[in-house]
């Protein structure tokens, strides 16, 4: 009774205040835990080392030698850091079978500093140059053949990703840019094998990158693509929606007219 006498806007006011408070509190807490740029250092490498010690060493070890919670980073190269940190996979949101991409925690300058520091610890693949990512002379047909031979088994023929074992998966390549693709091939993040420049040449990688870019551009002429996963989603759709419509139609046909 008392409730009904209150102004109808009261409920919304209470909700707004509650949501605002929660949001502000969360922002305050997460701001404390988010990695921060620390004291300005003279060189990029020193800045990277500082960032590493603060944000990464608890899992990867103080000298990046690896520990029970994280692998060694000796010799993984700048490309690996740029990929893992630049796509937000590192730092991990939570321990699990696979690091998932998210909003990067470090800005570009910090990522570059981390990459520069890790690169000093051991020789590894560097960040690809603009020249290496240039696909103007790439052959799409060869790229397609290489993609189907080397990539499609996990990422799918349409590059939308696919399942692996024990909860791991090959991610979709629909949003990956040329640099991400190159770095992933050359470093082999997580479950992915390494496709080094010595075995899959820079030109071959350019063919593949051009082909993936072409796949990304592909419109879906049939409309709703159902994830391009093939028979699984298509079967589910037809068994639920398709059969559902048929059942409704059958019931309508059989119903007695009034």
């Amino acid at each position: 009774m008392a409730l009904s006498k209150r102004h109808p806007a009261a409920l919304f006011a209470v909700l707004a205040v509650a949501l605002g408070t929660t949001g502000a509190a969360y922002a305050a807490v997460s701001a404390q835990t988010a990695p921060k740029v620390v004291a300005k250092t003279e060189t990029q490498v020193e800045q990277g080392k500082q960032l590493f010690l603060e944000g990464c060493s608890s899992c990867h070890g103080l000298a990046a030698q690896g520990a029970s919670d994280g692998p060694s980073l000796l010799g993984v190269g700048a490309a690996s850091v740029d990929f893992q940190v630049g796509t937000g996979r590192m730092p991990l949101a939570a321990p699990g079978v696979q690091a998932m991409p998210k909003m990067p925690s470090y800005n570009e300058e910090e990522t570059a500093a981390l990459a520069a520091y890790i690169a000093t610890l051991g020789a590894g693949p560097g960040i690809p140059t603009a020249e290496m990512l240039d696909t103007t002379n790439a052959e799409l047909a060869l790229g397609g053949e290489l993609f189907r031979t080397n990539c499609a088994q996990c990422h799918g023929a349409s590059a939308v990703g696919g399942a692996l074992s024990e909860g791991r998966k090959a991610p979709s390549l629909m949003d990956a840019d040329a640099k991400n693709l190159y770095e992933a091939m050359v470093t082999g993040p997580q479950s992915m094998p390494v496709f080094a420049d010595s075995t899959l040449s820079v030109e071959d990688k350019q063919h593949i990158i051009a082909y993936v870019a072409e796949l990304q551009k592909n419109e879906s002429p049939g409309g709703f693509s159902l994830g391009r996963l093939g028979p699984v989603t298509e079967g589910l759709f037809i068994f639920t929606i398709g059969l559902g419509v048929l059942i409704v139609a059958a019931v309508w046909i059989g119903a007695k007219a009034k």
């Binding site: 031979t149 082999g188 496709f195």
Partner: peptide, 17 residues
């Protein structure tokens, strides 16, 4: 496969496929 190039053992990185 697809490019038919001989493979140097020393070119294959750890974790390579």
């Amino acid at each position: 496969d697809a490019t038919y190039k001989k493979i140097k053992a020393s070119d294959i990185p750890l974790g390579g496929l």
